[in-house]
Design a protein around this nucleic acid. Structure first.
Length: 883
RNA sequence: GCCCGGGUGGCGGAAUUGGUAGACGCGCUGGACUCAAAAUCCAGUGAUAGCAAUAUCGUGCGGGUUCGAUUCCCGCCUCGGGCACCA
């Protein structure tokens, strides 16, 4: 009988749908397991083979956990706001809502064709007003929250203490004061602007090369009134939380780097001839004796005061030039340092010597105090600058570990040294400070103490994390529930949802006007007092909807509340979250931030949303290139026994691994694979390709390989004449239990490739043996079911079972059967394996030694040499050391 | 430049993190069945030498520790990802 997957698969999919097999159970006495996929953006291209990779992995774990007796929450939904639908609307006039609905329908059909065990009754869509009502509601919470630095938590603004001095200035002052504390605020911001998309974007969305993550066009700076979220308040909390999570270390590191904590000190430098100080931030206060000049950023507020009349013009010109440069020019391209002298001198607080204050754009206003002390001998940037402008380089740290030649150069101020060493020229008896001879660690501690004692500075911490720019000049996004009144007051619109109005024109204005400013009727509001107002026309970024969707899955149809708190307490946190690594600092940082705010407000019960995170590796494809490195489209490649040739030129080509791309004609459509080999084959292959977290190339022959396995399993197990054994063969029984053990273990460790190989080994074994008992066949169907659920259900029903096996108990391992009576010891001589020796497992070490010596094969390898030592690792190896 | 991952047969990848390197799958070779092919089944398959038993070499490169290293240490090469004038 054929492996008729084309009949089996739709049949079982229909069964599951009709019986609501995967509707989440409401037996809350069971242990829960919440397993989540990063929900997709439903693009017009349909499902990519990368999607089923993560989805199959979570599906295997979900099915396994159900059989293990867990109450499993495994939902799916659509992150459906976003640019492509809007751009498509601009080109074709089709409303984004229609495009989105069609794309979701396609995705849903495709996902359902894979037999994934989602609870579809919980499907959510971020563009549904019933959903974004609560996205808006969370925004209102953010708006009404301030961060209490003492308690290290967010609190309602109603609890914000207002200083008397502010209160005395009247209502507007109080309002401004509160606005200055809110986690969501509206302000003028130097923002990244993408001229191609005509919208602003967040720091996190700008790539290293200065291009927009979404479209690839270069971005520039613009000054606009925008909504921002004060995520930096949560820097420390976001950092600390990472230590409690079972996440890939790489992702944690990326978040740590992004938050960018650094410890250092703020130091005050008195300005010569002025009653002012210039405050700097440095991570190397220990090098204070080597500070030979200072630099302020061109945007520094004190710059005006610092400039002496004779330098006014050059400094003004420099600042103007700097302001016109994009950040890209100021970083990437500006290998060469630039800067000008302000005419002012500051006094080095430890030496008392005057040092010049310069302005240069390599110092950024957004970090630290926007001013630095420069120590050219021990900082490469300062060294470069000092050499260019002829500023003295004073070495104050003897590089003991440097090579002799380099050490001489450093000591002479001709080279820069940033490592540890011993301080020299770092004492001033007049000031009562001496760190000569100390190392870096002690030097920093000593100087910090001295600075604090003298009121000249103190140890501080800095973070790179900046306010999160939270508004976009887009139509297809969540409207802000905000009204700007004619008198300048901003209030929330509490009647949620604020529904996105219908529009025919989606074009954003070149100057930054949002498309919603065309929605005239929707736009204007009149208050009860007759006051006129205008709605916020920006919309929220795509991250908003995905920041909290995992919470809505818990109680997706609740119209009264964001969710039932009791359900939240039961289901949270997410136990396993699988998705791509591209979200390491965007979605995953934003979500954690929102979640912590909600936690502080008592809305959620856990401090972190995702307990375990796992990143699936990207699925790539084979591609071909010529000797010169030119890529060749796959349809022009001929495979001749493992070597590849260009069909037209006949040149031999090199096989490489690259991203799937339309131009290389190597994109795989999951629908085609399902049609040709079935969903179980697609699932199995994606899991069998290699470790889940690694990038790996798609190979058609690999699909055939697993398809072949399913064929063989079907041929054997679907033939009931094979399932007729009375009692099980002991060898088969042993292997069966070993297989259950290994498969269970590998599922727990998310190592599905090896789990599948164990199933193959078992199948190969029984096919050779010829017959198994019904019990063995049923057990095999159960352990196969997480991977190939359609075939497993089919076999299960063939054996006379009426119900789905989705909730059958996972087979127990009989530990007795895992024990071996004998061990086949590899015997090696001086580490080289020579032969194998089967011995009873119960033998003691000395008995094993005796058996080895007694073995006749041993004599052959001794050849008159003496045994120095015999190493026996019980049940592993024997190594005979000979002279 | 800095921070993370990788590098194992012709290919995808295994190896209980110090104990038989190459499980499983693909591909290839030979055989059975067939008029023939496909499908299926059986056997073989890291390299070199040998009819063979067997021997030598072999996990990116060079050292080291160890009875024993894909695994640990030191120094490199290389591919991928992230960050980057953050003082």
């Amino acid at each position: 009988m054929d492996y008729n997957f084309w009949e089996i698969e739709p049949k079982w999919q229909q069964y599951w749908e009709e019986h609501q097999t995967f509707k989440t159970g409401n037996d809350f006495s069971k242990p829960k397991y919440y397993i989540l996929d990063m929900f997709p953006y439903p693009s017009g291209a349909g499902l990519h083979v990368g999607h089923p990779e993560g989805y199959t992995a979570t599906d295997i774990v979900s099915r396994y956990k159900r059989m293990k007796g867990f109450n499993v929450l495994h939902p799916m939904g659509w992150d459906a706001f976003g640019l492509p639908a809007e751009q498509y609307a601009m080109q074709t006039g089709t409303h984004p809502a229609i495009t989105t609905r069609n794309n979701c329908d396609t995705f849903r059909r495709q996902i359902k064709s894979l037999g994934l065990s989602y609870d579809w009754s919980r499907e959510i869509n971020t563009t549904d007003p019933g959903y974004y009502k609560w996205t808006q509601w969370i925004f209102t919470r953010l708006y009404n929250t301030w961060y209490d630095k003492e308690l290290k938590k967010g609190r309602p603004v109603s609890e914000l203490p207002i200083p008397d001095a502010i209160r005395a200035q009247g209502e507007k002052a109080v309002r401004d004061y509160i606005a200055g504390k809110r986690l969501a605020y509206y302000d003028n911001a130097q923002v990244w602007w993408c001229p191609s998309c005509r919208t602003v974007c967040a720091n996190e969305e700008v790539l290293t090369d200065g291009s927009h993550e979404k479209c690839g066009h270069p971005v520039n700076r613009k000054n606009l009134k925008q909504w921002l979220l004060r995520i930096p308040h949560y820097s420390e909390r976001l950092l600390e939380g990472l230590d409690t999570l079972d996440w890939p270390e790489g992702v944690k590191d990326m978040q740590r780097n992004w938050i960018g904590k650094s410890s250092g000190a703020e130091v005050d430098f008195p300005l010569q001839g002025m009653d002012e100080i210039l405050r700097v931030y440095t991570t190397r206060p220990d090098t204070l004796f080597g500070a030979t000049y200072m630099v302020v950023s061109p945007e520094h507020p004190m710059l005006e005061k610092l400039v002496t009349p004779e330098f006014r013009e050059t400094v003004a010109a420099y600042s103007r030039a700097a302001s016109l440069k994009s950040d890209l020019d100021r970083t990437e391209l500006a290998k060469e340092k630039t800067g000008v002298f302000t005419g002012t001198y500051a006094l080095n607080p430890v030496t008392g010597l005057p040092i010049p204050v310069w302005v240069a754009d390599y110092v950024l206003m957004g970090y630290g105090t926007g001013a630095i002390m420069a120590v050219p001998a021990h900082d490469t940037r300062d060294f470069e600058f000092a050499k260019k402008f002829g500023i003295p380089v004073v070495c104050i740290l003897d590089p003991l570990k440097a090579e002799p030649g380099l050490r001489e150069q450093v000591l002479a101020g001709d080279a820069c040294w940033t490592e540890d060493g011993a301080y020299i020229r770092s004492a001033n008896p007049v000031k009562g400070i001496d760190i000569n001879g100390l190392n870096k660690e002690k030097g920093i501690a000593t100087i910090n103490q001295w600075l604090e004692d003298h009121g000249l500075g103190k140890a501080t911490t800095n973070y790179k994390l900046r306010d999160w720019l939270f508004s976009r000049q887009r139509y297809w996004g969540e409207p802000f529930p905000v009204i700007h009144w004619e008198d300048g007051e901003i209030t929330l619109d509490e009647s949620l949802p604020v529904v996105l109005p219908e529009l025919d024109v989606f074009e954003p204005g070149e100057g930054g006007e949002s498309p919603l400013s065309n929605a005239r009727e929707w736009l204007s509001v009149t208050g009860p007092d007759g006051r006129k107002g205008r709605r916020e026309t920006n919309t929220m970024p795509q991250w908003a909807g995905s920041c909290w969707y995992y919470l809505r899955f818990i109680d997706p149809r609740n119209e009264e509340k964001i969710f039932d708190p009791q359900l939240e307490q039961y289901w949270m946190p997410v136990d396993l979250y699988i998705g791509g690594a591209e979200h390491a600092v965007l979605h995953l940082l934003y979500s954690r931030f929102w979640h912590k705010v909600l936690f502080d407000l008592g809305i959620v019960s856990t401090d972190e949303p995702f307990f375990k995170l796992f990143n699936q590796g990207m699925i790539l494809a084979f591609a071909y290139e010529t000797a010169m490195g030119a890529k060749v489209s796959s349809d022009l490649v001929e495979d001749r026994e493992g070597r590849f040739f260009h069909k037209e030129t006949g040149d031999e080509l090199r096989q490489i691994v690259a991203k799937m791309s339309k131009s290389l004609k190597n994109v795989i459509n999951p629908d085609d694979v399902v049609k040709q080999y079935g969903a179980d084959s697609l699932r199995l292959y994606e899991m069998f390709m290699g470790p889940l977290d690694e990038r790996k190339p798609w190979a058609e022959n690999g699909v055939k390989g697993v398809f072949n396995f399913l064929n063989r399993a079907h041929r054997f197990f679907a033939d009931v004449s094979n399932v007729a054994g009375e009692t099980e063969d002991p060898e088969t029984e042993k292997l069966l239990h070993k297989t259950i053990h290994r498969v269970s273990q590998e599922i727990e460790n998310l190592k599905f490739n090896t789990a599948i190989s164990f199933l193959m080994v078992f199948n190969n074994h029984v096919m050779k043996k010829g017959k198994v008992t019904k019990s063995t066949a049923e057990t095999f169907a159960r352990i196969l079911s997480p991977f190939a659920p359609h075939l497993a259900e089919e076999l299960w029903s063939l054996y006379g079972n009426r119900n789905t096996l989705a909730y059958e108990p996972w087979p127990e391992v009989n530990q007795e059967l895992l024990k071996e009576d004998t061990v086949e010891y590899p015997v090696s001589f001086n580490g080289k394996m020579r032969f194998k020796l089967e011995l009873p497992a119960a033998l003691s070490v000395s008995e094993v030694e005796e058996a080895v010596i007694a073995c006749e094969k041993t004599g052959k390898y001794l050849e008159g040499k003496a045994i120095k030592k015999i190493i026996v690792v019980p049940k592993k190896i024997i190594n005979v050391v000979i002279s």
